[in-house]
Simulated scan of single mutants.
Amino acid sequence: MSAPLISISDLHKSYGDINVLKGIDLDIARGEVVVIIGPSGSGKSTFLRCCNGLEKAQQGNIRICGQWLLKDGTELADSSLNELRRQVGMVFQSFNLFPHMSILGNVAVGPRKILNAPKDESEKQAVELLEKVGLSEKADVYPASLSGGQKQRVAIARALSMQPEVMLFDEPTSALDPELVGEVLQVMKTLAKEGMTMMVVTHEMSFARDVADTLVVMEDGKIVEAGPAQTIFSNPQHSRTKVLLQNL
Rank of each mutant, 00 (worst) to 15 (best):
Q246T: 09
I64T: 14
S239V: 11
V200C: 14
S94D: 05
S2E: 15
S40R: 01
L84D: 04
D220A: 14
Q87F: 08
Q186C: 11
L245K: 05
V127W: 13
S79V: 14
E183H: 14
S174V: 04
A159G: 01
E137N: 13
P228E: 10
H12N: 10
E55F: 07
S7M: 07
I232D: 04
K22G: 02
D78V: 15
L129N: 00
R112C: 09
L54A: 03
L244R: 01
H100D: 11
N247E: 15
S136Q: 12
M205R: 01
A3C: 06
S2G: 00
K22Y: 04
S174K: 11
E32G: 09
F92P: 01
G66Q: 08
Y15Q: 08
V34T: 15
V216Q: 05
R209N: 11
V109N: 06
R209I: 06
T197N: 05
A108D: 11
K242Q: 11
S9Q: 14
E83Q: 13
T231C: 08
V216F: 06
I18C: 00
Q246S: 14
N52W: 04
K138T: 09
Q67A: 12
Q230E: 11
G149W: 10
V166K: 08
E165L: 06
V201G: 02
M101F: 15
K13Y: 12
L21Y: 06
L248N: 02
M199A: 15
R30M: 06
S239G: 03
R153G: 03
P111F: 14
L185Q: 12
T241L: 03
S7Q: 15
F92A: 03
L48I: 13
I232P: 04
A3T: 15
A108K: 08
A117T: 14
E128C: 09
T197C: 02
L245T: 09
N247R: 13
N247G: 07
L129S: 11
N247F: 09
V33K: 13
I156A: 06
Q246F: 03
N61S: 12
F98E: 06
S94A: 14
E83V: 14
D220I: 04
T241Q: 01
V91F: 02
Q163G: 00
M218D: 01
P143R: 14
S40L: 06
M1H: 12
L115Q: 11
Q152R: 02
E194I: 11
A192K: 04
I37F: 00
V20T: 03
A155S: 08
A108F: 10
L130N: 05
Q59A: 03
D10P: 01
G60E: 01
A175E: 09
V243E: 12
L97I: 09
V211Q: 01
A155C: 04
A3H: 09
G41H: 03
D213C: 11
V34A: 08
S161C: 07
F92Q: 06
A157K: 05
P4M: 10
L248D: 04
S234H: 08
L180G: 07
S122D: 10
Y142I: 07
P172W: 03
Q125D: 00
I103R: 01
K13V: 13
E121P: 05
M162P: 00
H100A: 15
P4I: 11
I64V: 12
V107D: 02
C50P: 03
N116R: 13
K132N: 08
V216G: 05
M1C: 12
T190A: 10
A108R: 08
Q87C: 11
